[in-house]
Simulated scan of single mutants.
Amino acid sequence: MSYLSQTIDYLLYRARSFKLHGVHSPFVFNLYNQVILHDGAFYAYPRVEAIREKLLTDNRTIEVTDFGAGSKTINYKTRKVADIARTSAKPAKYGQLLFRLVNHFQPRHVFELGTSLGITSAYLAEAARKAQVYTFEGCPTIACVAKENFDYLHLRNITQITGNLDQTLQPQLEQIPQLDFAFFDGNHRYEPTMRYFKQCLSKAHENSIFVMDDIYWSSEMKRAWQEIKKHPQVGQTIDLYFVGLVFFRTTQPKEHFTLAF
C-alpha cells in the first residue's frame, strides 16, 4: 500500500478516534484509562529495550525464510540482524502496550504468532512470569537469535515453535486447554490472517484477548480487520490504528471503539 494511502488512513483514524470522555463502556473506560494510556515505568521496560539496543548494533548477516507478506522495506533473503531490528521489531510503545495488557489480565496461555527477534515475546513473558508463552516463528535463523535474547533475560516461560504456521499452529492449539491471550503478527495477508484467527477462536473464551497487529498495513489487512469485527463470536473491539484489540465478552453489547493512542 502506498505512503499516500497510509497517510489518508491515519488521518481518517485520527478524525474518528476519541479519548475518555467519549467512552460509555465501563470496561473499556477503565482499560483505556488504567492500561492503554498508562505512562508510568515498569521494571521490564529497560531490560527489554537494552536487548533492542544490542540488536540495532548487531551486524551479523543471516539467511531469512519468510512465509508471510514480507517486509515493506527489505526483501533480501540475506539480511543483517540490525536491519531486521530496525524495520521489523515492534516499536517500544506497542511492545510496552502488550506488556501492560498481559500484566493487567494475567493470562495463563499466551500465543505470539510471529516471534521475529523476540522483543515482543520478551515483553509478553516478563509481564506474566507464571504464564506460558508460545511463540511461533517461521525462520530458523531468526528464531535462534530470539533464543539468545530469551536466554540473556533468563526467560524460562517461553516455548519456541519454529516452522510454517500452517503446520505448527493447530497442533499446538490442541495441546492447551484454552487460549487466554494471542498476538497475531505472523502473516500480513488476508487469507492466512483469517485462517489463523478462526483456528485460535476454537480455544477462546469469555475473557480471552486477541491483539491484531498492523490492521491498516495493506488493503488485505484492512479487509481482515473489518471481517473480524463482524464475526459473531467477537464482542468488542478497540482500534488503536497500529493494533486492534479483540474481546469476546458476552456480558456487554457488541461495540467497536476507535481510541486515540
Rank of each mutant, 00 (worst) to 15 (best):
Y190M: 01
R100F: 03
Q172E: 10
T78L: 06
H256C: 10
E112F: 01
Q170F: 05
S202W: 00
I176S: 06
E148V: 02
Y241P: 00
E63N: 12
V234T: 08
I142E: 07
F248E: 12
E227M: 09
R129E: 13
M194T: 08
D66R: 10
K54H: 05
P253F: 02
Q236R: 10
A128H: 15
F184Q: 09
V48D: 04
S202P: 01
M221K: 14
H205Y: 14
D39Y: 01
L113C: 07
P171E: 13
M194Q: 13
L117H: 06
R60P: 03
G186H: 15
F150C: 08
E148G: 04
L31D: 05
T251F: 00
R14P: 03
F247C: 10
I74H: 13
P192H: 12
K198P: 02
N187F: 03
N30H: 09
H231T: 06
C200M: 14
D83K: 13
Y43Q: 02
T7P: 04
Q167F: 10
A204S: 08
H205S: 09
A125F: 01
D213M: 06
I142R: 06
G118W: 12
Q170W: 04
T65Y: 12
F247G: 10
Q233K: 15
T57Q: 12
I142N: 07
Y152E: 15
F105G: 02
E63G: 01
Y3E: 15
E206Y: 04
L11C: 01
G138C: 06
G138H: 09
R52Y: 01
Y10A: 10
R223P: 02
E126C: 12
D214T: 03
V243H: 08
V48E: 04
G244A: 05
T87G: 00
Q34N: 06
Q34Y: 00
L169C: 04
S71C: 11
V81D: 09
A92W: 12
Y94I: 14
P232N: 07
I51D: 05
S2G: 12
L113A: 06
A85Q: 04
T73N: 12
R86P: 00
E227R: 03
T168Q: 00
N103Q: 10
E112K: 07
Q199M: 11
W225V: 11
A122I: 00
F257D: 06
L37R: 14
L37P: 02
T115L: 14
F248D: 10
I215K: 09
L201P: 05
Q34S: 13
H104M: 02
R156V: 03
D151E: 12
T65W: 09
R223A: 14
F181H: 07
E220M: 06
M212S: 03
R14D: 05
K229M: 14
Y43K: 02
Y134S: 10
A44P: 08
A143L: 04
Y196W: 11
R249N: 14
F248K: 15
I51G: 03
L56H: 08
L124T: 05
I8V: 15
V102G: 14
L31V: 05
R156K: 15
F111S: 11
Y94M: 11
P192C: 11
K72H: 00
T141Y: 11
S218T: 08
Y45R: 06
F181Y: 08
S116Y: 11
H104F: 12
Y94L: 14
N157S: 01
N164T: 01
P177Y: 00
T115K: 13
S5C: 09
I36S: 04
A128I: 00
F197S: 13
P171S: 13
C144W: 05
